[in-house]
Amino acid sequence: MTHSHVTTTINGDTVDYLCDAEETLLDVLRDRLGMTGAKEGCGTGDCGACTVEMDGRIVCSCLVLGAEADGRSIRTIEGMAKGEELHPLQRHFLEGAALQCGICTPGILVAARALLEKNPNPSETEIRYWLAGNLCRCTGYDKIIRAVQNAAAEMRGESNAA
């Protein structure tokens, strides 16, 4: 078979698709499912702009074949806000000017959410190393790190998220 029929879960919804064997999960998300939140910055796993979560671990969707997603559970940027309500990370990125052009932002948000779900109180160093695979060329990372710290503080229930 050169085409695979895949049934997977994306942001909680069951999704079926056909894909060519060499298509990546990123190709499938963008070109077949119209989910363009994940971006292709390099296609080689070096930039992190295509980051999604698969079965609880973040991955570069450019380094996953579409066919591999069968039976998995995928979370993407499109599922991060609950309707109109932004995730605290999204809100702190906005308020803290943690994005400029915004191309790396979806990947960084997905990666940062996975970090905070695993470690609600990461140190600056832990955040920096966790996000080392998410390149940002605009910000110099400063405001990104601060936004993650502030979102983490808010999610821990600490009132002073400054």
Binding site: G34, T36, A81, L86
Partner: peptide
């Protein structure tokens, strides 16, 4: 901003 943190913003390769 909101479109960019939710993945809705349309960049160069996002048009079909």
């Amino acid at each position: 901003g909101v479109d960019k943190v939710t993945g809705r913003a349309k960049f160069g390769a996002d048009m079909f």
